[in-house]
């Protein structure tokens, strides 16, 4: 596979390390009353869609960026690649 890195252009996916669903960015609030359930669902349950999915790849043999890749799990077509940092910031994550 080839991942079209937003900063570096196309790179062989072999340079990257896969983590999983991009929902792993949405780490729950540890102080919430439902934190135990929230963390359980966050850590263990997956949509696992047959079709378009957003997922995290780390450019380990490259610029060390975490990327959010939008990819189809039936065809492997990649339609979007973003810096995960930008996605996280856009989702309101801060510090």
């Amino acid at each position: 596979m080839i991942i079209n890195h937003p900063l570096l252009g196309p790179r062989d996916a072999a340079e990257f390390v896969y983590l999983g669903d991009a929902s792993l960015i949405d780490r729950p609030d540890w102080q919430s009353d439902t934190a135990a359930d929230d963390f359980y669902e966050y850590q263990y349950l997956r949509d696992n869609p047959a079709g378009e999915t957003r997922e995290l790849w780390f450019h380990e043999q490259g610029d060390r960026s975490w990327l959010v890749v939008t990819r189809n799990t039936l065809t492997h077509e990649i339609t979007k690649v973003e810096l995960a940092r930008d996605v996280a910031l856009a989702a309101g994550r801060d510090r």
């Binding site: 596979m1 696992n48 039936l74």
Partner: peptide, 12 residues
């Protein structure tokens, strides 16, 4: 190592 429902893999 990546999520997929396609019954095929890649070269690495």
């Amino acid at each position: 190592g990546y999520n997929t429902y396609a019954q095929r893999g890649n070269l690495p």
